[in-house]
């Protein structure tokens, strides 16, 4: 390791998102380390798109992402579970009504 101020510190971690082709959303594909944004983009190209996997790349410092917890029972998501009237199957429509 080098003799810099913080010898253990590597480059910061970036998360990588790739648009596979036009018409699709960017999707998270993994992460990488880079010294700055520009290097993160070129490294992401070399690492995650060696076989035409993408037409557009986003990179973002991992530390800049704010996330909910991944716990399924988290009360954070509770409000979406108890509103069954938001789903089309909540409504009884007679079978002889067409196109609905």
């Amino acid at each position: 390791m080098s003799d810099t101020d913080d010898p253990k510190a590597g480059w910061p971690l970036y998360e990588v998102f790739i648009r596979g082709k036009r018409g699709l959303n960017h999707v998270h594909v993994g992460s990488l380390h880079a010294a700055d944004d520009r290097m993160a983009l070129t490294h992401a190209r070399d690492l995650y798109t060696r076989r035409n996997e993408g037409v557009s790349i986003w990179v973002v410092l991992s530390g800049h992402i704010t996330a909910s917890t991944r716990d399924e029972k988290d009360p954070f998501f509770a409000p979406s579970a108890d509103k069954i009237y938001r789903h089309p199957t909540f409504y009884d429509i007679p079978d002889d009504v067409p196109h609905i």
């Binding site: 390791m1 080098s2 010294a35 700055d36 944004d37 520009r38 290097m39 557009s56």
Partner: peptide
């Protein structure tokens, strides 16, 4: 090691100079 250090120094210098991220085209 020297490449990693140089890239880190370059990144620090660029960050001190201007607004973050403005040099990416997209």
């Amino acid at each position: 090691a020297w490449v990693r250090e140089a890239a880190t120094a370059h990144a620090a210098k660029q960050a001190a100079r201007g607004p973050r991220g403005s040099h990416t085209e997209e």
